[in-house]
Design a protein around this nucleic acid. Structure first.
Length: 599
RNA sequence: GGGGGUGUAGCUCAGUGGUAGAGCUCCUGCCUUUUAAGCAGGCUGUCGAUGGUUCGAGCCCAUCCACCCUCACCA
């Protein structure tokens, strides 16, 4: 852990490291005397919180931030009053956590383990609810476990809402049923605590299905208060940074990520059923390639060389075609060192599949079937809503060439036009001149300006200009074009496929062209991959290849419009200033506990 | 990167230059079928950061940071 794996991602693992082994860090913290600082009376200075392991300098770390609490010499400090508030971090959160931690200490003193090891024979709440009538009538004793979301205490009885992975249920705890000691323990239960409960099911006066608790066990004490019980957690930044809190209080978020997993499973099932072999290829690569992108660079010490995080899987999967595997695919995490926005995260998921003896038309058939399968599996219908649109996957997808689609829209036919002629024809559109560096780019730019936004229902755009398709085979009939399609749905690209270029000489020439671009300063151009050319020289069968972004697909199928919302842990910039790490609060509390023990 | 917006208590939000507020959470008390339980009382903040204007700044100005929307580029 001493040397950061990826130079560019500093700070990404800070929080995780801090959580590893809190116990090991407490004794090593400088005390007040040594650091020459003083805990101010009732005030925690946020900016004086220092993370010991922030610098990536390779120095040994103990896995826990070195805490240094200090204050500004404000001159307003007074000797701590002799009540028990001296030295406390008195931001409100700290007080809330302190109160809960006190309960842990007290309960532990009474022999209650606030962090026991297991709770057995539980049933999912969903099952208890679906079998409710029978279970209630037979007074079957059942057990469940979950998190306390709401609590309503009334003297010698109490209700609480407990939620497990999928459902919530009300529990009823009455002193007559559980005994005084247990009822006192229930008094100490906070929102957020995790409980195991045993009892029978009944319906309350007001008609709510409820577990009448006969015994319960505290399974985990929660120290951090939950977000507001009514309005929940709405701040998008906090929801992304603390996805765990988001998942606790926003059931629809949980549903969305369950849906994401179902989508991936549907893809996997579909490809497995067609004998595509799921493989794994290197993420850490001596040379990147297979796409146009800026890579992340990292360094291997023992090899004493730079390595790259992959930007695409293409070149490795094609090597497997050479090796005779014929039908391969990979669920791949790729990394691109580019901007972060509504549609882009530095690490993202793709599916790439390669199919020997097939061409791009076969691949289009397969892709269409795959999407229909996924939509039906996950939605139970072929129609989905996306924003203001209803997308229907049932009819055959339109199939139209890029050049024809422009002709249909504008009347201009780019087929057979030279670069100069094409540029002239494009003159009436407001295009960025710097991009119009060849015929293919001009056609693409015109197409993007005129046709792309209108592609709401699933549409294959096919036969791209050769200049913008360096890995695709030349079209067997149409001069200057390649056998390539991209699928568009709701105005967005949902996949990209070619009849794969397998002539090693042609591929070498295209690499050399890319090499020139790289030298000329195009950071996204692809470097020459000698080993890939070597592989092609052995002979790669005629093949079709397809790649599509999983995150984008999940967005489409879950009606989300920001990639961050379909990623459990999206990349975030460094934390905004002013927030106090919970570990700092806990460290302070534990220090106070130790001091009060020794006095 | 350009343009627009937001940042106040753990959470959700008020607060247009004059002593930082509400609801929820939390604490104390009452309450044995409640349900955003209720009732009574109480604690809680470097108003994102830094600088400026002002007798006085949460509020006005500048810079910076983060997030959201939007435009251009990569999936």
């Amino acid at each position: 852990m001493g040397v950061p794996f990826v130079h560019n991602s500093k700070g990404c693992s800070r929080q995780r490291r801090g959580c590893q082994s809190p116990g090991s860090g407490f004794g090593k913290r400088g005390n007040r005397q040594e650091t020459g600082v003083e805990i101010s009376k009732g005030r925690f200075e946020r900016q004086d919180w220092h993370w010991g392991d922030r610098a990536h300098d390779g120095s040994p770390q103990n896995g826990f931030p070195r805490h240094t609490l200090m204050t500004k010499p404000t001159g307003k400090q007074q000797p701590p009053p002799d009540d028990d508030s001296s030295g406390k971090i008195q931001i409100p959160l700290a007080e809330l956590i302190r109160t809960r931690r006190k309960k842990v200490v007290e309960l532990t003193g009474r022999g209650v383990n606030c962090y026991p090891y297991r709770y057995e024979n539980t049933r999912p709440v969903s099952e208890l609810l679906s079998d409710f009538d029978d279970l209630a009538a037979s007074e079957t004793v059942v057990r469940l476990a979950g998190r306390v979301m709401l609590k309503r205490k009334m003297g010698k009885a109490a209700f609480a809402d407990v939620r497990d992975a999928a459902q919530r249920i009300q529990i009823y705890v009455k002193v007559d049923n559980v005994g005084k000691d247990a009822f006192d323990l229930f008094d100490a239960v906070d929102l957020g605590d995790i409980l195991g409960c045993e009892g029978t099911l009944f319906v309350t006066r007001t008609g709510e299905r409820t577990l009448k608790v006969t015994s319960f066990e505290l399974l985990t004490k929660s120290l951090h208060p939950l977000p507001d019980k009514h309005s929940g957690l709405t701040d998008k930044e906090t929801r992304s940074r603390r996805r765990y809190a988001d998942l606790i209080v926003n059931p629809e978020v949980r549903d969305l990520f369950v849906m994401r997993t179902r989508i991936v499973k549907a893809i996997r099932d579909f490809l497995n059923a067609r004998d595509f072999l799921e493989v794994e290829t290197p993420i850490l690569q001596p040379l990147y390639g297979g796409g146009m992108a800026v890579p992340f660079t990292t360094y291997h010490q023992r090899l004493d060389r730079d390595l790259y995080l992959r930007i695409a899987d293409e070149l490795y999967l094609k090597r497997l075609l050479v090796g005779g595997l014929e039908k391969v695919w990979e669920y791949c995490k790729d990394f691109r060192n580019e901007g972060i926005d509504r549609l882009h995260n530095p690490e993202f998921s793709m599916i790439e599949l390669y199919w020997a003896y097939a061409d791009y038309k076969d691949m289009a058939e397969l892709f269409e079937e795959l999407l229909r399968h996924i939509v039906l599996e996950t939605h139970g219908s072929y129609k989905i809503a996306y924003g203001e649109h209803e997308i229907d996957f049932e009819p055959r997808f339109r199939w139209v060439s890029m050049i024809d689609s422009i002709k249909d829209k504008t009347g201009v036919d780019f087929m057979g036009l030279s670069f100069e002629e094409a540029k002239k024809a494009a003159g009436e559109y407001d295009l960025e001149a710097g991009k119009l560096i060849n015929r293919g780019k001009v056609i693409e730019a015109v197409w993007e300006a005129t046709v792309e936004p209108s592609l709401i229902q699933p549409t294959f755009i096919v036969d791209f200009p050769v200049e913008i398709s360096p890995l695709a085979k030349k079209h067997r009939e149409r001069e200057g074009l390649t056998e390539r399609f991209e699928l568009f749905v709701a105005g967005q690209e949902m996949g990209n496929a070619f009849s794969e270029l397998n002539d090693p000489v042609d591929q070498l020439e295209r690499f050399l062209q890319q090499g020139k671009a790289l030298q000329a300063g195009d950071k996204e151009a692809q470097p020459l991959d000698d080993d890939f050319i070597t592989a092609l020289s052995y002979g790669m069968p005629p093949s079709a290849g397809l790649g599509f972004g999983v995150d984008r697909l999940v967005m489409l199928l879950t009606n989300q419009h920001n990639i961050r919302d379909v990623l459990l842990f999206p990349q975030m910039k460094d934390m905004k200033e002013g927030s106090v790490p919970v570990s700092g609060i806990l460290a302070q509390i534990v220090q106070d506990e130790k001091e009060s023990d020794s006095t």
